[in-house]
Design a binder for these strands. Structure first.
Lengths: 162, 162
DNA sequence: GTCTAAATACTCGGATACCCGCTGTCCGAGTGGTCCGGG
DNA sequence: CCCGGACCACTCGGACAGCGGGTATCCGAGTATTTAGAC
């Protein structure tokens, strides 16, 4: 059970767009070159972020991707759900109803499976922790360690006004 | 990103052994029949529980599996780690160091990646929630809804003293 | 009747194929910019 | 010089292969039981 590699790509790409702070779209080729990622596959991931309403995409010559919302309103949970889909980590196949044990347990299936409930509690804690952290929080934490990330990204993308 | 099916199998199997409450080992064929699971594959999963110290296995004619510890001391985290391995959900490939952005960010890599840290916080909340729930807790919750599970399991396994 | 020893049936354990989903890639649809010609 | 239209280059978007890990299975190693035979 490991997360898709695209989650890391998505977060870093969103962060770069946040640091850029520009209202102009950035093509996926530039974004991919920023971290040496396969351009076409990154595009595929960003499309899912568009579907989730985190990014906007503009076609055409001067097209590209840009943040659909300010970084303060984008949570890590939204990013993870956009890339991974909103399915739960633990899949309950209701095996308690099957086999010799399940056949004799009639009448106890009116409530949710206790295993599913317990796993769901843990998963909820995870999702809450993800929802409490916005892209701006991560950005601020990175800035605390490397204060010059804004200019670094602008320079790397060749869009610095300097 | 979805959890292995074996996790559900492992928890239910451990619960059945807890309800059985017997000091005698139960063969995997009986455990598999309890919930209509593929015998050989369930055996593979239980082997991992043995390696993790949650189960004991006895070979021979009267062999089988039995709980290595009381249900009160077995946490859901241990079960998940035993089946899924202890790798983290989020894999940090340190892409921040790569590409045009990474090349210009020299000097900012003395601390952990902020993305990794944030994801790690959420994952820690998940693991803590799993660690706080013991097998006995889940057992008690299931008993609250279906109070007769102990006898049900003993009957289903053909080991009832009655 | 009792002890011994071999045969046996049953168990776990690891080595071996299969299949779905993540990974990676390609080409087509669409749009804005650009250039050329005409007025 | 200004305007209009066609060409073009660049973008995103969805459709098409490749591979790794979860899924499923089979066969071999080992042990307690059983049973037959000898004393």
């Amino acid at each position: 059970m490991r997360m898709s590699r695209g989650v890391e790509w998505a977060v870093h790409t969103l962060l770069n767009l946040a640091w850029l702070g520009s209202g102009e779209p950035v093509p996926v080729a530039t974004l991919a070159a920023g971290h040496d990622l396969p351009r076409a596959y990154l595009n595929k991931q960003l499309q899912q972020l568009v579907k989730a309403g985190l990014l906007e995409s503009l076609p055409g010559t001067r097209g590209g991707f840009l943040l659909a919302r300010p970084a303060e309103s984008i949570t890590l949970l939204e990013v993870v759900d956009a890339i991974e889909g909103e399915s739960t980590l633990f899949r309950c196949a209701e095996i308690r109803q099957c086999g010799t044990v399940g056949a004799r347990s009639v009448g106890g299936f009116t409530t949710d499976c206790a295993v599913k409930t317990s796993m769901g509690r843990a998963e909820l804690a995870w999702r809450n922790a993800l929802a409490e952290q916005t892209l701006a929080d991560v950005q601020a934490e990175a800035d605390a360690h490397a204060p010059d990330m804004g200019r670094t990204v602008r320079t790397a993308f060749g869009l610095d006004r300097q």
